[in-house]
């Protein structure tokens, strides 16, 4: 039985006859960057080509997605063995690179915009922006206050303008925070409940995504946002998580112990958010309160 390989090449679909010595039966089916598998024209063109064979050839596919498409239109296929696939791909006509490149650029733009517009990526962008604004407010404003403080004369006028500017930066950041918190609560409700939406957003941004965070061990999550200290001295206790550790108010001297527990709950919460999306926040909060009570009660538990 003859075999033909269905393969994408340079943004088109081709049916390549591997039995023949020549590059016969090359068929450009679609001229879109990613051939739309649901497109009726592809299916029709393929059927037309297949009808030219004396007996229907065995269909081999280069990619799983093409196999699924064939199954959808009622044609059986098998994954192409590598040697056949290589031979088929070498027979595809070389399209001029300049022509291909525009397909690549379009495709890249589309995929990048789509990916960046996802709720998770929006959250990461917001979290990074908020971090930047926080730096502006704490470091730069402090520096300005130092020398503008007791301004008189011309400088007083400037100081007033600066005050207006500062107020608008603060307002901007407050609005940003609102958006950030809403985004965090919708992307990661459990994590936001246990560590607070702002820290949740920063954790996700530091990990590079909710999926990446969910795959982390709690000990790694605990240290996100810190740098490893050089030398063999004791390492840091917490990074991004610090704010929520302090907010929970563990007894002095036991912050490290509390941070470990908090990281463990946060890891569980992130996994729930990334997979089942079940609400487990109440259970985790109850555990947190119990742990805090025990830490406050005795010297060592």
């Amino acid at each position: 039985m003859a075999a033909a390989v269905l393969v994408r090449g340079g943004g088109r679909l081709y049916l390549v006859d591997v039995e023949e010595g020549s590059a016969r039966a090359l068929l450009p089916l679609e001229d879109t960057p990613e051939p739309d598998p649901a497109g009726p024209s592809s299916a029709d063109a393929l059927r037309r080509t297949l009808s030219r064979y004396p007996s229907p050839p065995e269909l081999l596919v280069g990619e799983p997605s093409l196999g699924a498409w064939l199954e959808g239109i009622g044609l059986p296929s098998k994954p192409a063995p590598l040697p056949e696939l290589r031979r088929a791909r070498e027979r595809l006509p070389d399209r001029p690179f300049a022509l291909e490149r525009s397909t690549f650029l379009q495709d890249a733009h589309r995929r990048l915009t789509e990916a960046l517009a996802s709720p998770e990526q929006t959250l990461i962008a917001l979290a990074r922006e908020e971090e930047r604004l926080e730096r502006v407010e704490t470091r730069e404003e402090g520096a300005a206050d130092e020398w503008i403080g007791g301004a008189t004369g011309d400088l007083a006028e400037y100081a007033e303008a600066w005050g207006t500017f500062r107020a608008s930066v603060r307002e901007h950041r407050a609005r940003l925070l609102g958006r950030l918190e809403r985004a965090a609560e919708s992307v990661a409700p459990n994590l936001s409940a246990i560590v607070g939406p702002r820290v949740a957003a920063r954790l996700i941004s530091a990990a590079g995504g909710l999926g990446a965070l969910a795959r982390m061990s709690s000990s790694r999550l605990q240290l996100l946002g810190t740098r490893r200290r050089p030398g063999g001295r004791r390492g840091p206790k917490y990074g991004v998580l610090a704010r929520s550790v302090v907010a929970a108010g563990p007894p002095p001297g036991r912050e490290g112990a509390f941070a470990r527990s908090l990281a463990a709950w946060a890891a569980i919460a992130a996994r729930a958010d990334a997979t089942t999306r079940r609400s487990i926040a109440e259970m985790l909060l109850a555990r947190r309160d119990a742990r805090l009570k025990r830490l406050h009660a005795g010297p060592r538990t």
């Binding site: 393969v7 994408r8 090449g9 340079g10 943004g11 280069g62 990619e63 799983p64 997605s65 290589r86 791909r89 070498e90 595809l92 070389d94 397909t103 690549f104 495709d107």
Partner: peptide, 10 residues
């Protein structure tokens, strides 16, 4: 690989 197999030639 299947994501760019069809885009990149040998």
């Amino acid at each position: 690989i299947s994501g760019y197999l069809g885009l990149v030639p040998p």
